[in-house]
């Protein structure tokens, strides 16, 4: 699709708002519908759209496949790390009240923000890895 000017221009216009919307869904999930899962999928979809229009090589220069693979684990580690952090502060595993000894509700806010970020990172990275896997397989077997 690299030779379709309409598709190229439309994608260039659409991708930044999609990425921004993903970040909005990510960090506004506490107040409205949304959260890490949806945000990760939308973020991944924007990258995949870029890949479909501009090719695998251009996409992999934005997000190298090694980085995407590592990020899949970073999200899970971030999530589990919050659990370990709360244990080290004297609470139960994933008990966000322990994150702020003076204001438990603030601790909940911090905990939810970080674990949702972890969810978003893992989901987005897995979506991108899936796309890289399929696209790379097609490239290598044609």
């Amino acid at each position: 699709m690299e030779h379709h000017p309409v598709v190229r221009v439309a994608a260039k216009i659409l991708i930044p708002p999609i990425l921004l919307f993903a970040l909005y869904v990510q960090f506004h999930g506490d107040f409205g519908p949304g959260g890490g899962f949806q945000a990760g999928v939308i973020f991944g979809a924007a990258i995949i759209l870029y890949g479909l229009v501009f090719g695998l090589k251009a996409t992999q220069s934005v997000i190298p496949p090694q980085v995407a693979s590592i990020l899949t684990a970073v999200g899970v580690l971030l999530y589990a790390g919050v659990g370990v952090w709360s244990v080290m502060l004297g609470g139960n595993f994933l008990d966000y009240n322990a994150l702020d000894s003076h204001d438990p509700v603030h601790g909940q806010h911090v905990g939810i923000l970080i674990i949702e970020l972890g969810v978003g990172i893992t989901v987005a990275a897995v979506m991108i890895v899936l796309f890289y896997g399929f696209a790379g397989y097609l490239r290598d077997h044609d």
Partner: peptide, 17 residues
């Protein structure tokens, strides 16, 4: 989800060539 991603990497690779 992480395990599913790992499975894909093991089956068809991560697109690294």
């Amino acid at each position: 989800i992480f395990t599913a991603g790992l499975g894909i990497i093991c089956l068809i690779g991560a697109g690294t060539g």
